[in-house]
Design a protein around this nucleic acid. Sequence first.
DNA 1: GTTTATTTTGGTATCGATACCATACTTGAT
DNA 2: ATCAAGTATGGTATCGATACCAAAATAAAC
Lengths: 335, 335
Amino acid sequence: MGKDKWVTMKDVADLAKVGTITVSRVLRTPEKVSESKRLRVQKAIDDLGYVPDNTAGALSSSRSRVFGAIVSTIGDSVFASTLDGLSGTLRAAGYELLLTSTGYDPDVEEDALRALLARRPDGIVLTSTSHSAGTSKLLKSLSIPVVEIWQLPPAPLDIAVGFSNFQAGHDMARHLIDSGRKTIAFLGGGGLLDARGRRRREGYEAALHTAGMTPVTWTDQGQAVPPGIELGAAFFDECLKANPHIDAVMCVSDTVAVGVLCEARRRNLKVPGELAVSGFGGFDVARPSGFDLTTIEVPGTAIGTASAQALLDPDAARARKVIDLGYKLVVRGTT
Amino acid sequence: MGKDKWVTMKDVADLAKVGTITVSRVLRTPEKVSESKRLRVQKAIDDLGYVPDNTAGALSSSRSRVFGAIVSTIGDSVFASTLDGLSGTLRAAGYELLLTSTGYDPDVEEDALRALLARRPDGIVLTSTSHSAGTSKLLKSLSIPVVEIWQLPPAPLDIAVGFSNFQAGHDMARHLIDSGRKTIAFLGGGGLLDARGRRRREGYEAALHTAGMTPVTWTDQGQAVPPGIELGAAFFDECLKANPHIDAVMCVSDTVAVGVLCEARRRNLKVPGELAVSGFGGFDVARPSGFDLTTIEVPGTAIGTASAQALLDPDAARARKVIDLGYKLVVRGTT
DNA sequence: GTTTATTTTGGTATCGATACCATACTTGAT
DNA sequence: ATCAAGTATGGTATCGATACCAAAATAAAC
């Protein structure tokens, strides 16, 4: 076992023959310390292998230099790119990321938030935009920046970074309508758990409504996890039984779309001749699958870096309030 | 905006007419407090909306209830499942996870570690097993558990959780040899960055050597990121030019294997008739791709939960030192 | 050379919870 | 009724860094 004693700032100060506060300044605001002392202190730090204690610093300065993030799952590749962007940008600025996942259980969110707040973070990132009453109350009482990412909420609590799922769903539906499809179904996005998918579906419904068409949606209300490939195939199978003359399927995600495409291939349906298929995501399973899927590409990493900047400079971000990074409708071979 | 004042433990104690220490005990060791006082304190906590300050608690108890993790990238789906397992198990035990990514830059590791140690974590998880001299020195001087995950190192610093990449590479090569392949190439795993992939390749080389066969490896030494699908296809293309009579390709990852399979399809090579292809990973792109890929499945989530347990009960874990969770050779349609 | 502005430096109180020790209060046994 | 053993409770010092203010050193201005 190693030594249990940490070198303290006082040890460094004594060795360098300065006051502790000077050591503190060398680390935080080196430009305010004369060169000679700065070098002496730096040498003492190196010699002793001093590692500052931020828990103490956080207590006295009430700035923890930590940001908290609450995501549904880390494994969800959607958030993974965002987290990379976030963590990278924050680390470069000397901050750390405290990560909590709720595992798609909305009841966990408030608990997770309380646990996070106990660490007195300098800011919080949330990936969900609908919160329980307790959560909202808690968030509103905070004086730290709160950044809601991915889905742009109608009334952001503080700062929002993302894009409009509704608009994206609407655009994709328009694309299918404009390319002459007559019966367009929507698969997935039913669960209350996934507000983002639901908004996409609502965009789809609005577009069809405007065009005088009847929405056909197929979803498993009770799902506890986001639908996978198998589920996509099954949805499509059932959906086709109920509505045989469907000529386009808009999917809540690329994963579901790949399932549909597999099932379509099995049935020898010509894509896009007899059936158009679209996805959503643009960076997960679509490319490796080899299906040349029409999809909506979302700016995952950009959301990460933009929200990091919002956390680091909340006033600048608050001036904009809602930072819409848009998305890209990528038309490829399946429509 | 909002109020800037946090409710303190003293406020709760005053309202409940008890000492601060009793409030502390209600939160940490409720069984040591009489029922009447416990209820009174609990009510005061709820009424005031008290959120404890763990930064203060960490300072006085020198237990931060935070664990640190250093990963190469969060986005890498390989670690994502592990992180989910880790974070989930830790949160259930009342701990938080401080996450840092090095972005495949080994020089960053020591910096990241220092930054992490400044938060005085109760334990550390590392995804890399070869460390700089400075990093090793730092790690050895710690009295907290250090868990190295994924690749089992020959000499673990403290506790190791994972499986043997060498053994896995060896097994897969044996499988190809046993099924009668004569010229087996290995794609990828060359970069110094990816110690895990390199170990797989070394296992492959050992197996071929034992069988009296000549290894054919193809890799881009200078790569800064793990090879993707396109690179897999390109590797295979070049490799085939140099060695036309290859009848099996063992890939460092599923992603590379999918690239090879795409290229093989383009060239009308019969799989597995003319060419056998194997991957590694078992949970990322292989399934969605629709190729029925023979691969090695690795216990991603299990590594996460097992390392969480190791952090929470280091003494039990240290008794085993190395926790080998194994892997699964899954023979499917491509070999 | 003296005064004024500016920079550099250190002492001490403080942040909020917990450890440690001492005291008050139970309970059960004699 | 008394004492021992155990449990419940509170007072106070403490963790390590930073804020705040005051003092000292230096530079600039006349």
